[in-house]
């Protein structure tokens, strides 16, 4: 696809993209080609692409949602970084890590509110996300108390064991 300034995205391309999205079980789809941008979501409250995604470590990007296996991006360049190449975490911050490999979800079910939002105060028992393995959804508890500063894992994406999911500023 062209990435130049004068992109040639035709109406039928958009129709095709919408069709692909409908037939998938993806939660959202964000396509950017030059100055053309398309955002599709099953979430009626969605306002646009999750910007947290852009901040996700680059090495995580190739992972596709399980249902989209056939469309997965090429494998990452080697050597493979340990647990997905976490970006550094600021001093004094705590992290919540993935208990196993699986797919990361922020809310208990599609369309329902997220477990937590940035800025929210949590305690050790707060459920913060779901990790899914073959349709088995396991809630993850914070294990630590504080204020959520960043949600680093991306909705619907594969996370590896021990990967940083959420960054929390400890309570005093």
């Amino acid at each position: 696809m062209s990435t130049g300034k004068h992109t040639l995205v035709k109406p039928e391309d958009v129709e095709n993209l919408i069709e692909i999205f409908k037939q998938s079980d993806w939660d959202e789809m964000h396509v950017q080609v030059g100055d053309f941008e398309l955002f599709l979501s099953n979430d009626p409250h969605a306002t646009g692409p999750t910007r947290a995604a852009a901040a996700a470590p680059a090495a995580l990007a190739p992972a596709a949602a399980p249902a989209a296996g056939a469309l997965a991006a090429p494998v990452a360049a080697k050597p493979a970084p340990a647990h997905g190449g976490d970006a550094p975490v600021a001093d004094g911050m705590l992290v919540i890590r993935a208990p196993n490999l699986g797919t990361f979800y922020r809310s208990p079910k599609p369309g329902s509110p997220a477990y937590i939002e940035v800025g929210q105060v949590i305690d050790a028992d707060t459920e913060v996300c779901l990790i899914e393995v073959m349709k088995l959804f396991a809630p993850v508890r914070a294990g630590i108390a504080g204020t959520v500063r960043e949600i680093r894992a991306r909705e619907g994406q594969m996370v590896e064991f021990d990967q940083v999911l959420i960054i929390v500023e400890p309570a005093d």
Partner: peptide
Amino acid sequence: GPAQSRLSYLDPKLLVHTALATG
């Protein structure tokens, strides 16, 4: 997952999930 085989190499669902998720 962690070092214990039960939580890594011995979990068939985890392995198939990984295969699908990595294309």
